[in-house]
């Protein structure tokens, strides 16, 4: 099962390596990890996408809570939530493919943010599934480079993660 863990950590040097180290030391999966400061500059927010059985994810949550720098851990997948990922894709866009590429980007609500006569750079946000679907819709040979941020997530409605 895929889980999205949202973690508030002290904005301390080393906090990221404590969390990342925990996953590698205990053999847990990380599909993606994002981290940046929050509105409170003393804290950072991480979103980690992981997979594992209920037992394993329960252990991951407990182990994360044990880290002294971790203020709070929530499994967003346990409630209603929104998840988004940002992707930048550089694609070949020359000759007859150029128009087709633009159309595909439009269908996925991608924005072309950089252009040369042979390429487009497309910005796309959405769920991981949507970004995957976009890549699948493209001709493999047309993709020059992809950069993805990994998932960020937030609870729906009034559900707020606070220290």
């Amino acid at each position: 099962m895929r889980h999205i863990l949202s973690i508030l950590v002290e904005n301390e040097a080393g906090a990221l390596s404590r969390v990342a180290g925990l996953f590698s030391a205990r053999g847990y999966n990380i599909e993606s990890l994002t981290v940046a400061p929050t509105e409170d500059a003393t804290m950072s927010r991480m979103t980690i996408v992981t997979t594992g059985s209920e037992e394993i994810v329960e252990q991951i949550t407990k182990q994360l809570n044990k880290l002294v720098d971790v203020v709070k851990v929530v499994d967003l997948s346990e409630g209603r939530h929104i998840e988004r990922e940002l992707m930048l894709v550089k694609v070949r866009a020359a000759g007859k493919d150029r128009e087709e590429m633009k159309r595909t980007a439009d269908i996925f609500r991608g924005r072309i943010i950089d252009v040369t006569d042979k390429s487009y750079t497309i910005e796309l946000t959405g769920t991981t599934d949507k970004l995957d679907a976009f890549l699948e819709a493209l001709d493999k040979g047309a993709i020059l480079e992809t950069v993805r941020t990994g998932v960020s997530g937030i609870g729906r409605g009034e559900w707020v993660l606070k220290a």
Partner: peptide, 11 residues
């Protein structure tokens, strides 16, 4: 005292 010791190897 450590919640992570509970249900780690045995339910």
């Amino acid at each position: 005292v450590d919640p992570s010791s509970i249900s780690k190897r045995v339910r």
